[in-house]
Computed example of a mutant assay.
Amino acid sequence: MPYSLFTIIYSVVFVLGLIENVLALYLLSCRVTHTSHSYVYMINLALVDTLFVCVLPFKIHYHLNWNNWIFGDMACRVTGTLYYINIYLSIAFFTCICVDRYIAVLHPFTYIQIKVLHYVVVVAVLWVVALSVMVPLILGGPLHNSGPRNTTLCFENFTTSSWTSRMAPYNILALVFGFVIPFSIILISYPLVAKRVSQIKHSIRKRKALTTISIILLICTLCFLPYHLTHLLHFLMRMRRVTLALVSVNCCLNPLLYYFSSSSKRWRCNFKLRFRSKIVYTICDRKQSDFVQGSFGL
């Protein structure tokens, strides 16, 4: 097992992910004028990724020491649970952004009636669901067990009885509601959004909108799909470790989403960043395509 490979991957993800997401949190919350309420989803996505990279040093030490966990059972529960919470909250926020863009483009008159409070409520519900899943795992039985060469494994290589009695319900629910349904929504909605956006003429931001769509599809396909395919087919734990490493790469790719969907200008190092002022339009004397450009930030 190439333990050094996982150590290198998680180390790179930790450095890049921490820098990128802390910077993204700062820019999204303090320095940027937002043209869409969906920035609420992006801030929370960056927050989830930041929490995730903060526990990666434990994962790095774990693989550096040949998969031997030395930090105790409670630390294993917390870090392991946060690892999987990052996966499904990230997918959930991607889906929320997808639905937001879908409504903005295909139902613009409904979109202008949605307030920022609605976004806050959705985010609160997602966090409550995530915490409700975390608490039983953290307060439950041990999530570490004995491995080869007198090592202690953390959050992996469960026995059949453990899988059946405890982990099976979590894995089935996570697979269906955490990935299959959200990913299906993304696959169905984004082509419709891309088709509608591509029909808009003379839009200087059409390329940015289509790039945003492509990035989200790329992240979901590259980072999340391989893990869930191996999870669905019950591959060996070694294969799941490889796909879990791919999952962590999403923390470095997510800031690309913030860049392409949040600003029409390059993010500069002097932090003097501002969004281009939002297009002003009226409903009564413009065509619907112009209105869609305004609501989508085109």
Rank of each mutant, 00 (worst) to 15 (best):
I112F: 00
L143F: 06
N157Y: 05
R149T: 02
V123F: 06
I97C: 11
H107N: 05
P108I: 01
V116E: 12
S203Y: 03
R207V: 00
V176H: 04
V180A: 14
S162P: 00
S198E: 03
S184N: 08
I188S: 13
W127P: 09
Y88V: 09
P169Q: 11
P148H: 07
V121H: 06
V78P: 02
N145Q: 08
S189I: 00
Q199A: 10
Y190C: 05
F93R: 08
A75L: 11
F93T: 03
S162I: 00
R149V: 04
M167I: 15
V122C: 09
R205F: 09
L126E: 03
T79D: 07
Y190W: 07
V133C: 10
Y111M: 01
L192T: 01
P169E: 13
F158S: 14
F93K: 01
I97Y: 09
V120Q: 00
S184Q: 07
F93S: 04
K206R: 15
L187E: 03
L175I: 00
S184T: 12
M167E: 15
T95M: 00
A130W: 07
Y88F: 07
A124P: 07
R196K: 13
D100Q: 10
V135F: 14
C154W: 02
I188A: 11
E156Q: 15
F158K: 13
R196I: 01
F158V: 15
V105S: 02
N150I: 01
I87Y: 12
Y170W: 09
L117R: 00
